[in-house]
């Protein structure tokens, strides 16, 4: 495995890597690491800066610690796995691939996520998320496990506001705070949990080498758009 000391070699050295297994050490807020990457593995040591793995188009970015804002912005494919927590605007406009955060996520996680064809954005947050989770969701799947927050709120305010497709799964029985009346909250049945949630959560658990069973304990609720209450305006053409 190749090693790049980002403080010494700079972002330029990371940029030149295409493919291969590379460790990026000494990160202390350097932005745009792995931006637009198509293949290979980046193992990030330390704390990378904003816009990590934005436009990620394949390959894997593994982070030992925390990531800051706008990680996985407009991601198209690949995997971003964060052992710590993520800042705001995580996985904005993500269309495909997987974003796994073992800790918490800040505000506006998964806004504008979507799916198309064989691409489907998957965002799993191990801890809790801040407000505005999954706003304008247009497709894809968001799962918040709330590990360590059992019995407490695991999302903030305005969860899923404006979403019109896709699903948010929450490992809790509690309704999200001030859930919009244009959204539906429903319990997740056994079949759906086995077929949809389990494979994703097992993959999540294996990436972080934690037992999957504890991530699946207790039931899930799902948040979806109420198709009878469209967000589209009523228009009168002049």
């Amino acid at each position: 495995m190749k090693e790049i000391d980002i403080r010494k070699d700079g972002l330029e050295a990371v940029r030149k890597q295409s493919g291969g297994d590379v460790a990026v050490t000494g990160c202390l807020g350097e932005r745009y690491i792995g931006c637009g990457m198509k293949d290979g593995i980046l193992r990030i040591k330390g704390t990378p800066g904003n816009a990590l793995a934005s436009y990620l188009d394949g390959g894997t970015v593994l982070v030992d610690g925390n990531v800051q804002d706008a990680a996985a912005d407009t991601m198209n494919d690949g995997l971003l796995a964060v052992r710590g927590s993520a800042g705001d605007a995580l996985a904005y406009g993500m269309r495909g691939g997987r974003v796994y955060v073992l800790g918490d996520a800040g505000y506006r996680a998964g806004v504008h996520m979507k799916a198309y064809g064989d691409r489907k954005g998957i965002l799993v947050i191990g801890g809790r998320s801040g407000s505005f989770l999954g706003e304008y969701l247009a497709g894809g799947t968001i799962i918040v496990l709330g590990l360590g927050y059992e019995g407490r709120d695991i999302t903030g305010y305005f969860c899923g506001n404006g979403m019109y497709a896709g699903t948010i799964y929450l490992r809790t029985g509690k309704a999200p705070l001030n859930l919009s009346d244009k959204l539906i909250r429903r319990a997740v049945g056994e079949d759906e949990e086995e077929q949809v949630i389990r494979p994703i959560v097992e993959d999540f658990a294996s990436v972080f080498s934690i037992p999957a069973a504890s991530c699946l304990e207790g039931g899930f609720i799902a948040i979806e758009a109420d198709s009878s209450k469209s967000y589209s305006q009523l228009y009168a053409a002049v």
């Binding site: 972002l11 940029r15 932005r31 745009y32 931006c35 637009g36 904003n50 816009a51 934005s54 436009y55 804002d69 706008a70 912005d73 605007a89 904005y92 506006r108 806004v111 504008h112 505005f132 706003e135 304008y136 247009a138 497709g139 404006g162 019109y164 497709a165 967000y231 589209s232």
Partner: peptide, 27 residues
């Protein structure tokens, strides 16, 4: 499926945020 792109970019709340999007695109 509708394609909705609201006026606000939910990742831009300041000139600094805009600068970051500009730079990530350049990157």
């Amino acid at each position: 499926l509708d394609a909705i792109s609201p006026a606000p970019h939910h990742d831009i709340y300041s000139i600094e945020d805009l600068a970051q999007l500009v730079m990530s695109i350049k990157e």
